[in-house]
Amino acid sequence: MNAILEITPILEITNVTRRFAGLVAVNDVSFTLKQGEILGVIGPNGAGKTTLVSLISGTLPPTLGDIAFEGHSIVKLPAYQRARLGIGRTFQIMRPFPGLSVLDNVAVGALFGHGGGESELAKAREQAREQLRFVGLEKFSDQRADELGGPSRKRLELAKALAMQPKVLLCDEVMAGLNHVEIDEVIDVLKRVRERGISILVIEHVIKAIKSLSDRLLVLHHGEKIADGEPDTVLSNPQVVEAYLGRKRA
């Protein structure tokens, strides 16, 4: 990949640990996400992947360690301020605004930075419509979000996060439960997102998908980073095979 690699990484995670009452969900993890990079994060169930995303987005505070965004520490910032800086995320357990229309679900994300007038609302809706077109949900614009099926909700999660014009997108299993065709479509969407210059951290269980998508792979196991590097190298790493792939094959 000849992605533009700048000197300051967009995200820098340094020795981050998160404990839950005795359980260490993320244990002393360090890595960077470069500008314009797609970093895949894999690991067995309970490895700490979602926790990691929550630590970066600010939903959870880390027990120890530092997280820097564009070279500045953000660990002390509340979640909403991190979002404003440009950290967008999707949720593994999908969280739409059920009573609002699909269009308005996305428009809420696009509203930030707009003034208070009603014309601003129209503009945000226009932007939202573009995002829906981008992820292929335009025909559902006027439906209520809770009327959408599972696969469409995954796309809605993406459109909402994209509407806030993030610099980094953290995707937590946006392909879970999708069929092959739908997975390919989402891969295509994410590649086009990266073409816009957005760096992506993507958590996924579907190895084939994440391999074709990621520039680099990071493997978590029991909260620890056990591998980080080229997808092919990482996937043939014996430790990874044992921890993750081995178990799946067994």
């Binding site: 987005s57 939903t59 509340p78 979640a79 909403y80 301020q81 979002a83 404003r84 967008g88 995320r89 949720f91 969280r95 739409p96 605004f97 059920p98 009573g99 609002l100 809420v108 994300g109 930030f112 909402k160 806030m164």
Partner: peptide
């Protein structure tokens, strides 16, 4: 509709 989602949108 969903408080934590609104937070994550900034």
């Amino acid at each position: 509709e969903n408080e934590s989602r609104a937070i994550s949108l900034g």
